[in-house]
């Protein structure tokens, strides 16, 4: 049962997944690489893909603001009454509809497959006992569906921009544009332009905005075609703050005796008071303050 002779000899991940689909395998495939990831399977169908390369369904929901942190936590707390299934809890709590959840989970799985296909894996491991994903699509997707969609996406981006792997590594910076031009940019694109600082790759922008990798790459390719982006590296001289290393002074600092001088309104010279410290945190009124703004 625990031995998988066919998958072990698989030539690549797609061949492995097709073999596991034949077997109706339950478990996960952990892929190493950059990025690697975990493909969760149930009866050989893909329930979810977790990879550092693209946001998971959880990130898509939370970062985009579709679900509030409070609603998410409430659903987590309610999983006790839904057999530990977060999807059911989210629907039961009314956070979102079953259809919407299904769409988000499927989108995250397709993006995961696409993100992992951008690099060559260095190895993989098939495990029957893996930590289940936070959100899963049930029933899962046929592996073949994922391959077809990934191929389609790669073709689309190649036609529009160039090699998808190169696009995924490009750090775009928004070009300066006239006010007239800015008015004609869709707000979805404006968010992207605001996030394109020259530091972040499309994947980073996806995580920051709660959008899938492919959607971000497609939009960036379109914006680049409109000459609204520069595909250059961030200039380290500009981004780096003053970082002169400091060493503590050689001698011991002279100790200040007595309380710190305080400035009082109406007096030009600071007058010494008995307060041990001047107030530094505006949120907290100083204890030794002589005039308190009492509440009526």
């Amino acid at each position: 049962m625990s031995d998988h002779p066919a998958p072990r000899t698989a030539r690549n991940i797609p061949a492995l997944l097709l073999a596991l689909r034949q077997e109706e395998f339950n478990g996960a495939v952990t892929v190493s690489g950059s990025p690697g990831g975990t493909i969760h399977l149930e009866r050989g169908l893909v329930l979810a893909i977790e990879t550092p390369g693209t946001p998971t369904a959880e990130t898509l929901l939370l970062r985009s603001g579709r679900i509030s942190e409070a609603a998410w936590n409430a659903a987590l707390a309610a999983t006790g009454s839904t057999d530990g299934r977060l999807e059911r809890a989210l629907i039961a709590e009314g956070a979102l509809s079953a259809a919407e959840l299904e769409i988000i989970c499927a989108a995250a799985a397709f993006d995961g497959a696409f993100a992992m296909a951008l690099s060559t894996p260095t190895g993989w491991q098939v495990t029957e006992s893996a930590t289940p994903p936070a959100l899963a699509l049930r029933p899962g997707l046929e592996p073949q569906q994922l391959f077809d969609e990934t191929t389609h996406r790669r073709t689309r981006l190649t036609a529009l921009w160039g090699p998808p792997a190169e696009l995924s590594r490009t750090r775009f910076r928004a070009a300066t544009r006239s006010g007239n031009e800015a008015a004609r940019i869709h707000h979805r694109h404006q968010d992207l332009l605001a996030a394109a600082t020259g530091r972040n790759t499309p994947r980073d922008i996806g995580f920051a905005l709660g959008r899938g990798l492919f959607a971000v790459m497609l939009d960036l390719a379109r914006l680049d075609a409109r000459r609204l982006l520069h595909a250059d590296q961030a200039r380290p001289a500009d981004t780096a703050p003053s970082v002169a290393p400091r060493t503590p002074p050689a001698g011991r600092p002279t100790a200040t005796v007595g309380p710190l001088p305080r400035r009082t309104p109406g007096h030009h010279a600071p007058a010494a008071q008995h307060a041990p410290h001047s107030p530094t945190t505006p949120a907290e009124p100083p204890i030794a303050s002589s005039t308190e703004k009492g509440q009526p």
């Binding site: 950059s34 990025p35 550092p52 390369g53 600082t197 530091r199 972040n200 994947r203 980073d204 995580f207 981004t239 780096a240 703050p241 970082v243 290393p245 400091r246």
Partner: peptide
């Protein structure tokens, strides 16, 4: 490393040495 957004080097007593930051105050 995918996912690193910012980083800061400091001394063990909390003095800034160098920073690669965008949003955080070094």
């Amino acid at each position: 490393v995918m996912g690193i957004s910012e980083s800061v080097i400091s001394t063990t007593d909390g003095l800034l040495v160098a920073a690669d930051t965008a949003t955080v105050h070094p």
